[in-house]
């Protein structure tokens, strides 16, 4: 045993793994909450991308789940499903939120905007989308929808941000490919500060 191992450190390790097994031979039942399988759904009307969508939603259902699996809006990605990465970022009444950490029932009176709703009616790309193409901002693309939605939220309130302001505004969006410089270039281009 590591002599420096304290009780506190041990508990931290156990919490991090989500499981503890303590005996040489044991019956183990996988830990976790016993969630009801198939709780009662309610029919909700949600404003998504300017359209009222009627959908059955269970009480514990996240907005990401509703968008992806019930409304077919798979542009919203799930990178962690626990509020760490920002891939699921959408706007609710123009505020960027993590859809994986928002219950769908919480947005029933709000206007939800996803990456699929950014194009103009004539099909023209949103300036952020066009700028991200011009700057070749995405790499693998899995985080891109979230990056775009955070950028849109920023530019809605601050049309000409500094690069530092843009960095702060997008800092809740992880990019494992490390394309941060290119996303920031995209934001600056979309705001007309890069030509």
């Amino acid at each position: 045993m590591n002599p420096k191992l304290t009780r506190r450190r041990f508990i931290k390790g156990v919490i991090a793994s989500g499981a503890a097994a303590a005996s040489t031979s044991l019956w183990y039942s996988v830990s976790g909450q016993n969630r009801p399988a198939g709780s009662v759904e309610r029919l909700l009307s949600i404003n998504v991308n300017g359209q009222v969508r009627r959908v059955d939603v269970s009480p514990q259902e996240t907005l990401a789940h509703t968008l992806r699996y019930k409304l077919g809006l798979t542009g919203t990605k799930l990178g962690c499903n626990r509020g760490e990465c920002g891939s699921c970022t959408v706007l609710a009444d123009d505020v960027n939120i993590y859809a994986c950490s928002t219950l769908t029932h919480e947005v029933k009176n709000k206007a939800v905007l996803t990456v699929e709703g950014l194009r103009a009616a004539d099909g023209t790309l949103h300036p952020v989308q066009a700028a991200f193409i011009e700057e070749l901002s995405p790499q693998c693309g899995f985080c891109t929808s979230g990056q775009i939605m955070s950028a849109v939220a920023l530019l809605n309130t601050n049309p000409r941000p500094t690069r530092e302001e843009a960095r702060q505004a997008l800092s809740g969006n992880l990019c494992r490919c490390g394309a941060y410089d290119h996303y920031l270039n995209g934001v600056m281009r979309a705001s007309g500060q890069l030509s």
């Binding site: 191992l5 931290k12 690069r163």
Partner: peptide
């Protein structure tokens, strides 16, 4: 890893800590 129990202690992204916007230079 916890050496007493063999449990990983930084499974999540925020613990494993890939760099964020705030960990890299403003220009490269």
């Amino acid at each position: 890893y916890d050496p007493q129990n063999g449990l990983p202690a930084n499974v999540g992204l925020y613990q494993a800590k890939p760099p964020t916007y705030l960990d890299v230079p403003l220009h490269m």
